[in-house]
Design a protein around this nucleic acid. Sequence first.
DNA 1: AGAATGATCCTCT
DNA 2: GAGGATCATTCTC
Length: 213
Amino acid sequence: MILSREFYARPTLDVTRDLIGKVLVHDTPAGRTSGVIVEAEAYIGESDPACHAAPGPTARNAPLYGPPGVAYVYLNYGMHYLVNAVTELEGSPAAVLIRALEPLEGEPLMRRRRARGTRRRAASFDAFELCRGPGNLTRAMGITLQRNEFDLTTSALRIEDRRIPPRKVVWSRRIGINVGVEHEWRCYDPESRAVTRDRGEGRDKGEGTREKI
DNA sequence: AGAATGATCCTCT
DNA sequence: GAGGATCATTCTC
């Protein structure tokens, strides 16, 4: 079942949490790829300095101001496409960045896309490595700027509820930003091997989850 | 363990 | 013309 527009027309943090366990699907001439969302981040409004809407409306961030349930895709660092799902009502700029997936369909195609242009062989990729990180998952799924503003409720790029058993979720600070770091708006399944490894801030908690190999 | 680096290009001032 | 919601690898301490 494809997620409805109403699903996205809610507070962004609710949508972020509820997207964990849903399935991102992309159909292309090369075939279908899909994966279970296990990590996502919320970017909320012009008052969130890390949100692309922070400077006010521009040509690039226009989709954020549009209706919910639409894809916002943009190029980051000159080489990575990042995909977001626009949330909340039209005129209220907010979105959820999809950060990691567990591959479901089209894993061989994902391997080929990830290996393309590199020295690595397609077979050398670990399954959980294919869609770990927002730039990696768009590469594996063949998502480019061309998909910007696509309707996630009807198009070849969509998010479905496939009744995957509920995932455990935890919240943390967002990754890869220097402003708005105080918000714990990153939501992920701590037991998924596809989740981005936590670099950056040292852990000050007594929760010594320092992993050894 | 943490910092630096390079690939690479669209968007806004 | 500067600066990114990155990633993997290579450095330095």
